[in-house]
Each structure stands twice: as structure tokens, then as C-alpha cells.
């Protein structure tokens, strides 16, 4: 009996689920291994009994909390897919304001209309990672996830192994690719504290790593800050890099609220 797998999304751009479609021909191989019983984005059919739930997106409102709890109760294994589910996504940056302040900023000139007060879909949005609400079994990090990593994790789970997600910095992958290190050409990068597994995608194409995969479990954060300072970044500039995707880590360390 093939394991039954269901895909869900919450507050997200659906880019991670798109990576499933982007598996292209490999997707056809994956479909031989599992039974997709629910995947709203591509199919009408839906079943409530599944073994594995793959969830993208952050949890924003009470109705979302309810939905994820129901999913958690039904699934034997819950996989958080991507940065929104893992860390809260970029939208977590909005948490520094109240929902009212956010609404006002977006609906500027809305002029007294009841923006959301009567609309349950707007109830108290505040973005959280999945594991701030339910227990998560596996995290596939990244924004978006790397589709090869997604396939590898599935294969590992189906063959009784722990998901092969590295816990060493991006630098390892960059060096193995013989990339020109951005620090050696006057730029900066969050690679040294960020979890590898994406093949150092951004530095490979000349852009600094933005830590979308989250920090490694034991980052040398102070040393990284020192390096960024030596490269001329102000504390604000450093903070802007640390909070873009990884505000959650800083919150956990008590460095921001």
C-alpha cells in the first residue's frame, strides 16, 4: 500500500507547492511511490485520510490555527514545506505592527470603512511558523524549497531514513562549486550562518545569501556580525539581513521581540 500524501497551504505564495509541479518528469516517478489524495492547487478530489501532510505557509488567524490542528490530528507525519511554514516567512516582518496598523498601511484612504471588523477572514492576522502551533515532524527549509531536496526527503522517509538535510553552512557548498566568494570581492553574504542544501543557489548567481533556509543549529553568530561590521555594514544593515527571513531565530534568542 502506497503512503497517502496530502498537500496544504496557508499564508504563502504557493511557490513551494509549485516546486512539486516543477519536479517535471521526476514528479511522475514520485507519483509511483505515493498516492496524492489531496492537492487543492491541481486537483478537485480530496480525501481526509492521509498518512503524510505536507504543509506550506504560515499560520495567521484563529481559523488557520483550527485548520492546521485538524490536519495534524489526521496525519501520522507532518512536513513543514518552506520558509513560511518553517520560520513564518517574510510576512513575519509584519508582526512588528499590530494588525490594525498593518491594515491601515495597506488600505490607506479607506476612510472609516470597516476594514475587516466584520470580516472573519481578517481576524487578528499574526504570522507564525507551523511549530509555534502544532508539532512538526520534518522541516524542508528554503524559499522556495529546493525540489531535489524535496525528492530526497521523500525517498528517505519512504526508505526509513532521517531526512538528509545538512546542518553545515552554505560555505561548504559554495566552495565545492568553486564559486568566487562574495566576501573576497567586496560584498557580503549570510552564507556562513545559513543552512546548506540549496546548492548555494544565490551566491552561485552572484547574489548574497539571505538566509532563507534559516540558520544552522549552532551558528557562530557573533563572529558573523564581526565580519559584516568589518565589511562596513552598520548595525541597522546587519539587523536588516538577520531579520529578513530569520527574525524567528532572533526572537528565540531574545534579540528582537
Amino acid at each position: 500500500m502506497k503512503p497517502r500524501i496530502a498537500f496544504f497551504d496557508f499564508a504563502s505564495c504557493e511557490g513551494c507547492q509549485l516546486q512539486v509541479a516543477n519536479l517535471e518528469e521526476t514528479l511522475l516517478d514520485v507519483l509511483r511511490l505515493v498516492d496524492v489524495v489531496s492537492f487543492r492547487e491541481v486537483m478537485k478530489e480530496h480525501a481526509d485520510d492521509y498518512d503524510i501532510a505536507v504543509v506550506e505557509g504560515s499560520i495567521a488567524r484563529p481559523m488557520d490555527e483550527e485548520r492546521i490542528r485538524a490536519i495534524r490530528a489526521r496525519a501520522k507525519l507532518l512536513i513543514a514545506l518552506g520558509a513560511c511554514a518553517h520560520l513564518g516567512g517574510v510576512q513575519r516582518l509584519g508582526n512588528r505592527w499590530t494588525p490594525e496598523q498593518n491594515k491601515k498601511a495597506v488600505y490607506d484612504g479607506a476612510d472609516g470603512n470597516d476594514i475587516g471588523d466584520n470580516n472573519p477572514f481578517f481576524e487578528k492576522p499574526r504570522h507564525r511558523a507551523l511549530d509555534e502551533v502544532v508539532k512538526v515532524d520534518v522541516v524542508i527549509p528554503g524559499c522556495p524549497v529546493n525540489r531535489d531536496e524535496l525528492a530526497r526527503v521523500l525517498v528517505a522517509l519512504l526508505t526509513g531514513r532521517r531526512p538528509p538535510i545538512p546542518d553545515y553552512p552554505l560555505c561548504v557548498e559554495c566552495k565545492k562549486k568553486e564559486n568566487v566568494c562574495l566576501f573576497t570581492i567586496g560584498k557580503v553574504c549570510m552564507g556562513p550562518v545559513t543552512r546548506a542544501g540549496c546548492g548555494a543557489a544565490c551566491p552561485t548567481y552572484g547574489n548574497e545569501c539571505e538566509a532563507c533556509r534559516g540558520f544552522i543549529s549552532h551558528p557562530h553568530a557573533d563572529a558573523q556580525i564581526d565580519v559584516l561590521r568589518k565589511h562596513g555594514l552598520t548595525p541597522e544593515e546587519i539587523l536588516s539581513r538577520q531579520t529578513l527571513f530569520t527574525a524567528r531565530h532572533l526572537e528565540q534568542q531574545g534579540k528582537v521581540s
Binding site: 495567521a60 488567524r61 510576512q91 509584519g94 495597506v106 492576522p125
Partner: peptide, 13 residues
Amino acid sequence: EAPRFFESFVRGR
């Protein structure tokens, strides 16, 4: 869809 408020939180970036 849950609102994410991009137009708000890009402020200050």
C-alpha cells in the same frame, strides 16, 4: 486567503 500585508511590512526595508 490570509492577508500578508506586503505593502505594510516593506516599510523600513
